[in-house]
Amino acid sequence: MIRCERVTKVFNRGRPNEVVAVRDVTLEIASGEVAVLRGPSGSGKTTLLTLIACAARPTSGRVFVLGKEVSRLPESFLTRFRREHIGIIFQQFNLIPGLTVLENVTAPLVPTSTPPKEAEERALRLLERLNLAHRRSFRVRELSGGEMQRVAIARALINNPEIVIADEPTAHLDTSLAAEFLEIVRSLREEGRTVVIATHDPLVYEHRLVDVIFDMRDGSLVGVER
């Protein structure tokens, strides 16, 4: 499903501010698993997620997603692959403030040949499922943190992805909202999707939903718990 082979990501290579954000990481996540990347701030979790999420290419090493090598793919194909197979929930929600909830959720479908009607129907179904249908024409600014989180989730699911990636999903949520989020993760797993979460929130990594935990320190993988 997802396999990293000796993956390294270096930023600003050859310059004084060179950073090795991910160092020689090899890991494998099976289909339908809930995986957690755990580690302190700056340990390279987000960077590794961008590589798995096909948002960046590694400096060296190989990344396979859904059986396809994506580490050497040109940008446009990488983007297309991400658009078709991966849903991302960002560290800071990353909603577009000027747009309504519905428009935010359908934004990933704009550069595809999905007719607007169909896109809206899909978005509405997701919003209903996340109990947000009544907020569909609200602007993002008018939402609470938990609602924003759920909009971000709806948006990540709009392309019906096989893989859902979440970066610090509970960082801005209180305990009950975090529990709600984990319920959503459970339903995603029941649908057979693979979920990868970067977090240092015990509430998440101690949950029994989690199949595998990867521990990261300074960009390296230091332990795997199953």
Partner: peptide
């Protein structure tokens, strides 16, 4: 930037 992250390519 967000659009790019959501799967819009440079071309889009």
């Amino acid at each position: 930037g967000i659009l790019k992250a959501l799967g819009w390519s440079t071309g889009d």
